Amino acid sequence: MRVNRILLSTALVVVALVIQVSVLARLHLPGAVPDILLLTVLGLAMVYGHVGGALVGFGAGLLADLAPPADHAAGRYALVLCVIGYLAGLIKPENGRIKSATGPMLVVVAAAIGATVLYALVGALVGDTTARHVGLGSLLFTAALYDLLLAPFVVPGIMFLARRADNDPLAEAGSSAKGSDLSAGWLTSGTGLRIGGQRGFGGLKSKARARTARVGRIKGVKRL
Rank of each mutant, 00 (worst) to 15 (best):
Q198H: 05
F201V: 12
P169V: 08
F153G: 05
S189L: 07
Q198F: 15
A162C: 14
R199V: 08
R194D: 14
M159T: 03
W186T: 01
F160T: 09
A184I: 14
L150G: 03
Q198N: 08
S206I: 11
Y146T: 00
R164H: 04
I195L: 06
I158R: 00
G174W: 14
A162F: 08
S176L: 14
P169D: 12
P152E: 00
D181I: 11
D166F: 00
A177K: 09
N167I: 05
G203Q: 04
L204H: 03
D181G: 02
S189M: 06
F201R: 11
T191S: 11
L150E: 01
S206W: 08
A143W: 03
K207A: 12
R199G: 04
S183G: 05
G179I: 10
Q198V: 11
S180D: 14
A208Q: 11
R211W: 05
A171T: 10
S176G: 10
Y146N: 04
E172P: 05
A173Q: 07
G200P: 00
S189N: 06
S175L: 11
Q198R: 13
T188K: 09
P152F: 00
A165H: 10
S175K: 10
W186I: 09
A171E: 12
V155W: 05
D168G: 07
L187W: 13
T191R: 15
G202R: 14
A144S: 05
S175C: 02
A177Y: 02
L145Y: 09
V155Y: 02
M159D: 01
A151P: 13
A208C: 07
R194H: 12
L193G: 05
L193N: 10
G197Y: 03
G192E: 03
S176I: 14
S175W: 15
G202V: 12
F160Q: 10
G185C: 13
K207C: 11
S180Y: 13
I195D: 03
S183Y: 04
G196R: 02
G174R: 15
L149G: 06
P156I: 00
S175P: 08
R209V: 13
S183K: 07
G203S: 09
G200Q: 04
A151V: 01
G203D: 09
D147R: 02
P169T: 10
L150N: 00
Y146W: 05
S206T: 09
A165N: 06
L182R: 07
T191N: 14
G202S: 06
Q198Y: 08
A144M: 04
P169M: 02
L204C: 04
D168V: 13
L204E: 12
G157K: 00
P152C: 00
K205I: 15
S180H: 11
D147N: 13
G185P: 06
T191K: 13
S175I: 07
K178L: 06
A177H: 08
D168F: 06
A162R: 03
M159G: 00
G174D: 13
G202I: 14
R199A: 08
M159E: 06
F160S: 07
T188Q: 14
S176V: 14
F153P: 01
R209H: 13
A143H: 06
F201K: 05
L204N: 07
S176P: 04
